[in-house]
Amino acid sequence: MAEDSDQEKTEQPTSKRLEEAQRQGQIARSRELNTFAMLIASAMLLLMLGESMGNRLVDLMRKQFQLRREVLFDPLSLLVYLKQALIDGALVIAPIVAVMVAVAIAAPLALGGWVFSWEAVAPKLEKLDPVKGIARIFSLHGLSELIKALLKIVLIFGVAILLSRHFLGELVGLGIEPVDRSIAHALQIVGQCFLILSASLILVVMIDVPYQLWDHNRKLKMTLQEIKDEMKETEGKPEIKARQRRIQMEMAQNRMMAEVPKADVVVTNPTHYAVALKYDQNANGAPVLVAKGVDLIAAQIRSLASGSNVPLVASPPLARALYYSTEIDREIPKGLYLAVAQVLAYVYQLKTARANRWAEPIPPANIQVPDEFERNG
């Protein structure tokens, strides 16, 4: 097993490995994609509702700064106004908060799906190991996180400088605009800057998403020995499967042998093949093959038939045809009706003769079998 642990993980993960990983909460995730989706959604909402939000904020401030004298000196009234101000402020930002929550829930569906696993949230003492923590910091994952953080800082800083230069004149001009117009204009500038800054993160997302998919697949890759062990666990060890098949065959053979004494006739080769047939005259169906075998099993069938006074009829072509064309507990094919009818007619004559102690009839000879049923043993 030491050699197995040194094998390189070069094989793609199996479906069972992927299912186990998903059950444990190990799926491809991109925090950058989730953050990008939330920022873009909130920025677009701010652009659409910025003016109305600004007007509502102005109304809220006017309302709170125009309190009457008796209200200012009444502690209970101040608490009522403060509560109402908090409610009004929450209603102003509620649309953005609601959209961000909805996007935060829906964004994971774009990569890996939405999965909740108790195993993933269960506390693990190994995560508190400082040695493993340092190893994670200096691992490939830690290096990728550092590169992404530096890229985001440089990207956002560069875009922010360009935006500040572009909107500098408008920002300075806000001071000479009316208050209502100034707040609405300011929110519009903020929304545009917010949207452009958020959109710039698409570069980080385009790098992070393929990397997360590749890294997730790399972690789940398997060695050849792991695949072999999984196949053994799934399908069972060869020796166990062979033993199960042997037991099943023995059980099926025992059930088959139990039907031989109930048969009406056994058609033999006479040495290599033996086929037991049963016919219910009260039913509308054809004769049914209840047992068949070759060599040793055929000998057992003949022995059981002889011990149970079941007639034996030697007809090599018919025995082979029945053996190869009919499964156990199935009716014989239509092409063999005539041949089997000759055998059953002989059997009924034989039973009648034995019951009345008459001379036994001559067994049928040269029973013809259609060419399509002619097969060599």
Results as ranks from 00 to 15, higher is better:
Gly54Gln: 13
Val92Lys: 14
Leu151Gln: 00
Asp74Val: 02
Ile137Ser: 00
Ser117Val: 08
Ala110Ile: 05
Leu76Phe: 08
Arg68Trp: 07
Leu60Phe: 14
Ser139Gln: 09
Ile147His: 01
Ile93Gly: 05
Ser139Ala: 11
Ala120Pro: 04
Ala110His: 00
Ala90Pro: 06
Val97Glu: 03
Val80Met: 06
Leu76Arg: 11
Lys63Leu: 11
Ala90His: 04
Pro95Phe: 03
Pro95Met: 03
Ala160Met: 15
Leu72Glu: 02
Ser139Lys: 07
Gln84His: 14
Asp74Arg: 02
Met100Leu: 07
Gln84Pro: 05
Val154Cys: 04
Pro75Arg: 08
Leu151His: 00
Val92Gln: 12
Glu119Ile: 09
Asn55Leu: 10
Ile137Glu: 01
Glu145Ala: 13
Leu125Pro: 00
Leu79Gln: 14
Leu151Asp: 00
Ile105Phe: 11
Pro95Ile: 08
Leu86Asp: 01
Arg68Pro: 08
Lys83Arg: 15
Val115Ser: 05
Leu82Ile: 12
Leu67Cys: 10
Glu51Lys: 11
Val58Gly: 09
Leu163Tyr: 07
Pro75Asp: 08
Glu51Asp: 11
Leu140His: 03
Gln84Glu: 15
Leu86Glu: 10
Val71His: 13
Phe73Ser: 05
Lys132Val: 00
Arg69His: 14
His141Gly: 10
Lys148Val: 02
Gly50Asn: 12
Ile105Ser: 00
Val58Leu: 15
Pro75Thr: 08
Ile153Pro: 11
Ala85Ser: 15
Lys132Trp: 05
Glu51Val: 09
Lys127Ser: 00
Leu72Tyr: 05
Lys124Met: 00
Val121Glu: 04
Pro123Gly: 12
Val101Lys: 04
Asp129Leu: 07
Ala98Ser: 13
Leu91Val: 02
Met100Ser: 13
Ile105Ala: 08
Glu51Pro: 06
Pro95Ala: 01
Met100Lys: 03
Ala149His: 09
Leu60Ile: 10
Leu79Ala: 14
Leu150Cys: 08
Leu57Gln: 11
Leu82Pro: 03
Gln64Asp: 08
Met53Val: 10
Leu82Ala: 15
Ser139Ile: 10
Lys148Tyr: 00
Asp74Glu: 12
Ala90Met: 13
Met61Ala: 14
